[in-house]
Every structure is written in C-alpha cells, then in structure tokens.
Simulated assay, not measured.
Amino acid sequence: MSITLADARVVTPEGVHEGWLTVEDGRITHVGRGTAPGPGHSLAGRYVVPGFVDIHCHGGAGGSFPNGDQDEARRIAALHARHGTTTLMASLVTASLDDLARATSALADLCEDGLLAGIHFEGPYISRARCGAHDPALLRDPSPGEFAGLLAAGRGHVRMLTIAAELPGALDTVREAAANGVIAALGHSDATYEQTLAGVDAGARVATHLYNAMPPLHHRKPGPIAALLEDERVTVELINDGVHLHPAMTRLAYDVAGPARTVLITDAMAAAGMGDGSYLLGPMKVEVTDGVARLAEGGSIAGSTLTMDVAFRRAVREAGLSMTEAAEVTALTPARVLGLDDRLGSVSVGRQADLVVLTDDLEVAGVMRHGSWITEPR
C-alpha cells in the first residue's frame, strides 16, 4: 500500500519545510518540498512530526504495567498511541522478585508481538532515602546474580534498569546490565557526585527523571544532578508536566545537555487519560487531584498523568524549543537510547512510518504507526 501525505509542514532533523512525503509498506520512501508530484491525502498545512518514543511509562487508561496483565497493557498502549506515542517501553516499579518475574514474563509476550519496545525495571535496587512512590519494605541491595534471574524472565526484552549507584553491589550490577545489552540508568539515588560518576564509569548511560528522587544541586555538594548533566556519556530524562519540574529547570537541563542528550518522558501511571480519583501504582495507593498523582500516605509525587503530546507542546511553549528540537527530544533521542534510531525517530527516508499530525496549536490531529492510521486526520 502506498500513501502520499501532501500540503504538510514536515518536521525533519534538518528543519521544517512545506512539502509532502510518501509511505509504502510501512516505511517512508520519499520526503519532498513544495507540491506533491501526484494526488495525495492533504493535511491542509498541518505539521508532521515523528511518532513519539516514551522510554519511561507505568500505565494509563486505568491500567498499570506493574500488574503484568496483558489486556491492561494493550489498553495502556492504545491510550498512549492516540496521543502520538508509537514506541512505548513498559516500566515496572519495586515489587517482590516473584511479582517482578511474573509481570516481566507476561509483558515479554507483548514485546515479542511488537506492541511494546521493552521492559524497564525502576526498582527494587534504589535508595530508601529517595524511593519516592516505591514501597520501602521491598527495596533490595543490587545483586548481579539476582538481576540475571530477572533478565531470564524477560527473554531478551528487558531494556533498562534504574539503580542507585551508592548501594552495595550497584557497580557490579551496572556492569552486568551493560554486558547483557541492558541500559543502566542512575536514579532514585542519594549518591554523591563521585559515586554517580563511578556509576557512569561502570556503564550507566541514562539519568532516570533528572532532578526528581535525588539530592538537589548544592554549590559545595553538587551531587548526582551535576555529574549526570555534565557527563557527555549520559542522556537525561525529564518529566515536562509542569508538576515535577519548573520550566526554568527544564531549560537549564536542556541548555547543558542539548537535544542529543535530552529525553522527555511521561512517567505516566494508571490515571493518564482518566479523571481524578484513587489508583494503584504497584502496591502503593495513589490519589489523583487536579491531574496530580500523589501517594495517599505521605504525599510523595507518584508518577504523572502526562501524555507525550502534552510534553511536546510544553517543550515548545514553555521551554522555548523549536519544532525540530522538540521532535528530537520526544522521538529521535529516545530512539537512539534504545538503539532504534536507524529504524524510527525521524521523518526520514527509510525510517518506519510512525508519524504524528499536529494542528497549529500542536494538538494531535492524526497518528500513523507502521504505515497504518491509528487516528486518521480529516
């Protein structure tokens, strides 16, 4: 099947231009400027950006990946796809090893089906002092051998592990992750500057939701934030929902790390796409009020209700990113983190036809995944 999208403002890595593109057999085969050479589907001047890639998401549509329920997982993926996320990683939270293995095995089936891009363990190897919305009773010191058992449950689909660098056994576990092709991410950590750099030297390459669940910047104790921002080996995640971060801190991280080292994530939980009310995040009870998720006990922020289209829109309106830069931090850079940037993440010839059509107000008007419309623009 071949389709031409005409009369578009096409957002490519090189910039934005008025033009057209052709999709054949699920891939982009032509990207042109000006008037399309033949009949096509007119987008009436709307933007075309690459499908969003979310590497940190716990749920949505009332469902939660940590439950390990495949029907819930499909519902979550469908919700985020309607908001432009065409590549989605399932993030788990701290739980017992048996529960983690069970959920991982169930979600691995959906990775094999192509619905999910992988599985992310956020816990149990995190700091008790910075555990946020994780159950402190279930936290554990890292163990390479124990982690290898969780990897086995994932059958090659575990893609990321969040770990606190200061914990006993952490550096060896980071090395174990890297040796098995798993992205080690530093976060939920009370580490010093030096301990954080040791984690990076051991192979960690991502900062889990920079700023959140780690010591703040201090002029005599720079801590993990300074170490992760300044090290060019590290890509930093940001939750750009207006709750987790002040826009000035988003801009600060972006100015230091740049688009090639910045990834916007949702960190969404079950309430994404839903209303206020009571929810669960793993075993933890969460109350959502005015769209903000907090633990019922203690009040810690417990994920978000964010979707990637909102993160994109805020990046342009609040953080001052250009359309090209916003596309990079919501699609190309996270695709690069996953090692998939040769297949997706940009509106480029040869890439997978994962596309989002946006209005002038940057609202989603259409979503295409693998060359088929999820939501067809009218």
Rank of each mutant, 00 (worst) to 15 (best):
A8D: 14
R27D: 15
I28R: 07
T35P: 15
L43W: 01
L43V: 11
V48H: 05
V48D: 08
V49A: 13
F52R: 01
I55L: 13
A61P: 00
A61D: 08
G63M: 11
P66F: 13
D71K: 09
R75V: 14
I76H: 03
H80W: 03
A81Y: 01
T86A: 12
S91D: 11
S91W: 02
A95D: 10
L97P: 14
D98C: 14
R102D: 02
L107Q: 04
D109P: 00
E112C: 15
E122K: 05
A129I: 12
R130H: 06
G132C: 13
G132S: 09
P142E: 00
P144H: 07
R155A: 08
G156L: 06
A164M: 06
L171D: 01
T173R: 04
A178I: 09
G187P: 03
T192W: 13
D201F: 01
A202L: 09
A202S: 06
A204Q: 02
A207S: 06
N212G: 13
P216V: 02
A226G: 12
E237K: 04
N240T: 05
A248S: 13
T250N: 13
A253Q: 00
P259V: 14
R261H: 08
A272M: 08
S278D: 15
M284G: 09
G291I: 13
A293G: 08
A293Y: 01
E297W: 02
S300G: 15
S304F: 06
L306H: 03
M308G: 01
E318F: 07
A319H: 10
M323L: 15
T324M: 13
T324S: 13
T330S: 04
P334D: 00
R336V: 07
L340T: 01
V349D: 10
A353F: 02
A353Q: 03
L358R: 06
A365T: 09
G371Y: 05
W373R: 04
T375C: 14
